[in-house]
Nucleic acid binder design. Structure first.
Lengths: 191, 191
DNA sequence: GAATTCATGTAACTTGTTACATGATTTA
DNA sequence: TAAATCATGTAACAAGTTACATGAATTC
């Protein structure tokens, strides 16, 4: 459901093709909602059947034709009504495969866990770096679509991603410390 | 995929019915992986077809029969091999509907956003409270299954949940502050 | 008397992922 | 010459959600 809403919201800024939408997802929304191209195309189809979007074919020289989608009046209405109806529960389920492996960590060596945790922090640090870039893109994009007032809200959501990433790093570092202490103690007992 | 692995891992501690598994998910794993009962039953079926689990029917007085599942040798092997093979990317996609609404926050009033943010913090605070309970359950459960060494790893994953929840609250409070500043400024301009 | 707990599931549906297919143009 | 980019999608599958069905026992 939410992917369709996100698509409607993005199209309300400016008409786009499925391919364009994928770029926007990857360089901004990705932080809290990701989407595969195949899913975007499918949901654009569903939205069209519902009458929430319509498209115009834009021929291109030496490139495949573009289908440029825009939100219809009905779509605009549906999106606005979805947006204002916040669900009772604002905290959704989390799914994290890394945590499952840590949960069953007794089956792995503590050295292996430290190694994976370090790999984890490196990946999250990269993510954090990419967020800095997103911050720039946000400002430019807001100007591009002549909606400077959007920037404020986009930054709120980005801020959350940044804070979460920073917390992830702190957590992993804490884990590494505890794991190292653990196998130092165990070493003492053994030796 | 991961749900099946989580089920195998939990069953390796002690044989359980689908219903039992649901309880364990709800009061511990829920923090980073949730599951519907219907999905658990389905995946138990799939695991059985794969030969990774087997069950024994346990008749009960005045209650429906229990199907108590346990991990087979093959299942044990499959789980261990999954566990040791960490994927290249340790940071999975996030999906958060609340963030989508904030992202498109310019379509809502700042007062409404403050209201929802406050509701959000209250819900996360409740979650945090429930984590304290989980902490107790973890200790008891580790003893119950005679695996005191598990507690350490369970606490690592729980710690992450706690830190994430705390960060969410900080973020929302920061947002509320900024939103209030925003509409105070706008009030000044208007008045 | 109504709701919750225990215990099983099925069916229908929605959402997300992976692989495949096409084909020109541009960059390394 | 291989790959990435632009641009469309389809098909098959996996995973997750919601609604429905049964039925006794217990608690409010």
């Amino acid at each position: 459901m939410s992917l369709q809403q996100a698509i409607l919201g993005l199209l309300s800024y400016r008409p786009m093709s499925g391919y364009d939408l994928k770029q926007v997802f990857d360089e901004s929304i990705n932080n809290f909602w990701s989407a595969q191209l195949s899913q975007i195309y499918r949901d654009l189809g569903t939205l069209e059947t519902k009458g929430y979007v319509s498209f115009q074919v834009e021929p291109q020289a030496g490139r495949p034709d573009k289908k440029v989608y825009s939100v219809t009046g009905e779509g605009e209405e549906a999106f606005q009504s979805w947006l204002t109806k916040f669900p009772e529960s604002l905290v959704g389920p989390i799914r994290d495969e890394f945590n499952i492996r840590i949960f069953f960590g007794s089956r792995l060596s503590d050295q292996e866990l430290v190694f994976q945790m370090e790999r984890f922090t490196r990946q999250v640090r990269k993510l954090l770096e990419s967020y800095k870039l997103v911050n720039k893109i946000i400002g430019e994009y807001a100007k591009e679509i002549s909606r400077p007032e959007e920037k404020f809200y986009w930054q709120l959501t980005l801020k959350r991603g940044i804070m979460m990433a920073e917390t992830s790093i702190s957590w992993a570092e804490e884990c590494i410390k505890e794991l190292k202490e653990k196998f130092q103690k165990e070493g003492e007992v053994d030796g």
